[in-house]
Amino acid sequence: MEEGSRGVPLGTLIALMVEEGEDWKQVEVPPPTAPPAAPAAAVAASVAPPPAPAQPPPPLPPAVHTISSALLRLSPAARNILDSHGLDPRLATPTGRRGLITKEDALNLLKGTPSSGAAVPVAAPAAPPAYTPAAPPAYTPAPAGPPPAPGLRPNIPPLSIPGKPGAPGTFTDLPASNIRRIIAQRLTESKTTIPHAYASVDCDMEAVMKLRKDLAKEQVKVSVNDFVIKAAAVTLKEMPEVNVTWSGDGPLALDSIHISIAVATEKGLITPIIRDAADMGVQEISATAKALAQRARDGKLKPEEYQGGSFSISNLGMFGISGFSAVINPPQACILAVGGSRAELRPSADQQTLRTQQLMTVTLSSDGRLVDDALASRFLEKLRANLEKPQRMALV
C-alpha cells in the first residue's frame, strides 16, 4: 500500500510478513474480508436494563476449537509442519495477526496431539460482558472570586488545544500537503543525521548600500540579497573546499556553483536554484531570482529548477529578523542565514571617534563532517570582505 494512505478500510491487507529466507511471492494471500458487524443482540443488551436474575444454565461440554476453512490463514512454515505430520490446520489455535496460524501455533498443536492423531479439546472462551459507558460527570463552573488586587496577575484558565467549542483537550486534524510532508521528512533527516555547526559574523553593508543607490540612478534595481548571493558564489569559487557534499563514503567535491535560495510559498518552503551564480553579474542574478521566486509561488517550478544545488541561502531580513540559524538542506554542506541590516555606532579605524555603520549578521550552518570550525571561520572572513568591498567580486 502506498505510503501516507488515508481512510484505509478495516480488513484491508497493508503488509505481508514472511519467515527469513522464504519467498513472499509464494505466500497465499487471502481475499479481503469485511469487518464483522456487531450482533444486534449485543447492541440491545448494552442499552436495555439488566434482566431479572435467572437460574444459571447447565454447563456446556468442552468444545473442540475449530476455524472456518473460509478464514483459514497459515504461514508457510506452519503449512509445512502441519502437512508433514498430517495434522488438520483447523485444530490449531491461531495467535498471529488477523487470525494467522504461525509456526509456533503449528508446533504447539504438534506437541499437544496424541499418537492416535485425535485433537486435544480446548474449552471455548466465555463471552465478555457487555460494556455500558458511564455517563460523564456534570460540569459545575467554579464560583467567580473577587477581582485581583492591583499589580497581581489574575488566575488564568488552563490552556486547551483549539477544537470543538467548549470541549477542552480536543484538537483539529489538519491535512498536510505532499510538499509539507516532504519538507518535514527532509528537515528531520537533516537534524538527526547531520552534525550542525554554527558561526556568525557582522558585515558592514555601507559599500553595498551606496552601490545600490548608484545603480538605481541608472534604472538598475537590485536587492541586498542579490549581492549576498553573488558574494557567496564568489567566496565558494575562492574556497572550493567548502563547495562539497557528503556521499556515502566521504566528501565529494562539486565542479559547479549552484546557489539555492529559500522562497516561502503557501504550501511551504522551496529552494529554487541559481545555476553558475559565480559567473553572473548582480543584475542577472536579480532577474533570475525574481523569475524563480514567482514560479515557485505559482507552483510552476520544474524539478531541475529546485534539485541539485550546492549551497543554500535563507534571508529573513525583510521580516525584521536580525539573526537566526538555518537547517542544512541535505545533501549540501552549508546554508547561510541572512538577517536584516541595522545602524550601530562603532569605533572608527583609528579608535578615536565613533561612526555609524550599517551592519548585517550572517550565520553559517555547516556540516561538521565536511566544514570544521576553522574552515567555516575563513569562509565567513572572505564573505565579509567580498560584501564590504563589492568591487573586488568582479576581479575573482
Rank of each mutant, 00 (worst) to 15 (best):
M1V: 11
V64F: 14
R98S: 14
V224T: 13
L292N: 04
L380E: 05
A34W: 07
R6N: 09
L301H: 05
T265K: 04
P94S: 06
R275V: 11
P133R: 00
S223F: 01
S314L: 09
S348W: 04
S325L: 11
I101F: 00
L316S: 13
E266N: 13
V263N: 11
S69G: 14
Q351A: 13
G299Y: 09
M205R: 01
C203W: 01
P128T: 05
L71D: 12
D173L: 09
A231C: 12
V282C: 10
A184Q: 03
M205E: 02
A333C: 05
R342C: 04
T132M: 04
I257C: 02
G368L: 01
V201S: 08
L254K: 15
K111H: 12
A326R: 00
K217N: 10
V222N: 08
P125N: 11
L174F: 12
I101R: 00
K237N: 10
V327T: 14
T113Y: 02
L375A: 08
P129N: 04
G339Q: 05
G309N: 13
G339I: 04
P32V: 06
G299K: 15
L252K: 12
Q391F: 13
W246T: 03
P61N: 03
N155E: 10
L301Q: 10
L301A: 13
